Simulated assay, not measured.
Amino acid sequence: MSGYNVLIVLVAAILLAAFSWTITPRGKHQTLIRSSVLLSITCCYLMWSITYMAQLHPLIAPRRGDVRFEEVLN
């Protein structure tokens, strides 16, 4: 697990967005379809990258659940 995964997936999201931009069918709702697809790709990438980076470098260190309070005092 490294921070480079975020950049690799960013490139993949950009390529997917460019591909979806080019294959959007022409017509009355072309702008709406393009906007919806690009917004969906962007939101999915942002949600994934924020979650991934939060797990990569957590703000709060995890604690063991099997340690009991009585054992800590003795």
Results as ranks from 00 to 15, higher is better:
16 L>K: 03
13 A>K: 01
41 I>V: 15
15 L>V: 06
29 H>R: 15
25 P>D: 01
6 V>M: 06
11 V>F: 10
71 E>V: 13
46 L>C: 14
54 A>F: 06
41 I>N: 04
38 L>C: 01
19 F>R: 04
46 L>T: 15
55 Q>F: 10
16 L>Q: 08
31 T>H: 13
35 S>P: 00
56 L>S: 10
73 L>P: 02
57 H>G: 00
55 Q>C: 12
73 L>M: 07
13 A>M: 11
68 R>A: 09
26 R>Y: 09
53 M>H: 08
26 R>T: 14
49 S>T: 15
49 S>A: 15
32 L>Y: 12
68 R>Q: 13
67 V>E: 07
60 I>N: 10
43 C>G: 08
12 A>P: 00
11 V>Q: 02
20 S>T: 09
58 P>G: 01
9 V>K: 11
48 W>F: 13
36 S>F: 13
51 T>F: 09
50 I>D: 03
36 S>Y: 13
48 W>A: 10
28 K>E: 14
51 T>D: 15
6 V>A: 07
34 R>P: 00
71 E>C: 05
4 Y>W: 08
27 G>L: 04
10 L>G: 04
45 Y>E: 05
67 V>Q: 10
49 S>Q: 01
57 H>C: 03
66 D>R: 05
55 Q>W: 11
10 L>H: 03
73 L>Y: 14
28 K>A: 10
70 E>H: 09
17 A>M: 02
3 G>M: 04
61 A>N: 02
28 K>G: 03
31 T>E: 07
1 M>F: 09
28 K>V: 10
56 L>W: 15
55 Q>L: 11
52 Y>W: 07
8 I>R: 10
72 V>Y: 14
56 L>I: 06
4 Y>D: 14
28 K>C: 02
67 V>F: 03
72 V>S: 12
25 P>Y: 01
41 I>S: 00
9 V>Q: 09
21 W>M: 07
59 L>S: 10
19 F>E: 02
71 E>F: 06
38 L>A: 06
50 I>E: 05
32 L>H: 13
9 V>C: 08
64 R>N: 10
54 A>W: 07
15 L>C: 09
41 I>P: 03
46 L>K: 08
38 L>D: 01
12 A>V: 14
25 P>K: 01
12 A>F: 11
21 W>T: 11
33 I>N: 00
74 N>E: 13
21 W>S: 04
10 L>W: 08
36 S>G: 15
59 L>D: 06
72 V>P: 01
46 L>Q: 04
32 L>R: 15
46 L>R: 10
1 M>D: 14
51 T>A: 14
29 H>I: 06
6 V>D: 07
35 S>H: 04
34 R>Y: 00
12 A>C: 08
2 S>T: 12
22 T>K: 13
50 I>T: 13
1 M>W: 13
29 H>W: 13
35 S>W: 03
37 V>T: 03
27 G>V: 02
74 N>W: 07
16 L>S: 08
4 Y>T: 06
69 F>E: 14
20 S>N: 05
8 I>N: 04
16 L>E: 09
51 T>G: 13
58 P>A: 03
54 A>T: 14
22 T>Q: 12
50 I>K: 07
30 Q>E: 15
50 I>P: 01
55 Q>I: 08
25 P>M: 01
56 L>R: 14
1 M>I: 11
13 A>W: 04
19 F>Q: 00
15 L>T: 07
71 E>G: 12
37 V>M: 02
52 Y>D: 08
14 I>Y: 06
39 L>K: 09
39 L>A: 14
14 I>R: 05
18 A>W: 06
11 V>I: 15
50 I>Q: 03
18 A>R: 10
